[in-house]
Amino acid sequence: MYEILKKEILAPTIKKIKVKAPLIARKTEPGNFIILRVDEKGERIPLTVADHDDETGEVTIIFQEVGYSTKLLGSLEKGDYIHDIVGPLGHHIDMEGYKKVVLLGGGSGTALLYPKVKGFYEMGAEVITITGARTKNLVILEEELNNYSDRFFITTDDGSYGHHGFVTDVLEDLLDKEDDIDLVVAIGPVPMMRAVADMTEEYDIETIVSLNSIMVDGTGMCGACRVTIGGETKFTCVDGPAFDGHKVDFEELMNRLSFYQDEEALAEETEEEVNE
């Protein structure tokens, strides 16, 4: 059992929790994820570690409530317990040797972007961060990202805050004007990552995307998270979650992510009936 030490609501559906998990905290590096199970009947859900503290043994998780299990997680308060947490899983991102990096986060993907922004900044790279949200009150981690970025841009789809438009608008502008960008990192909804990868391919700039495939065990045992990378099948959990954005079969990824839509709806309906 893992106690929730702190909880913060970053945006209406985006929450941040801190849990005590010393074994995981001391091993985590940017890009790693954990799998948790809220209670005995819960699903195993993969979530990226947003931050960690080796000394206090605390792990920070930021997540968006998208379905039954994440809503249940979001309903927990300080002092409540999470039944199981396992990790750190997946490969961390290799950050060495980059001079100028553009990092883009879309929606709750921004939370997953944060440890990478911090990591590259601490490695001494020039960091340009672009975060995009649908509307102003969904913009998260503004201050934290700004602290670790040399340049920082916000975009909103409806123009209620920052630049009116998409993260790719800002990226295109940068790519046109600056020819010394040596890495682009994009984390967010699949269409956003795909748009970024398509754009950077034209400029021939290395691009890393972080995939959010469906998983069960997260240790390479089930293969639910398989993705096609450059024509080869890979497991997101052990081979990723970060991959070369120019090689990902996004079409297949989108399709695979939609497989349990009906069941997810059913789980939420059932829960509503129980609560009524």
Partner: peptide, 14 residues
Amino acid sequence: MKAYKYPEYKTPVK
């Protein structure tokens, strides 16, 4: 994950 008891247990199988 006891998907045969879905939706009592929350992991689906299709």
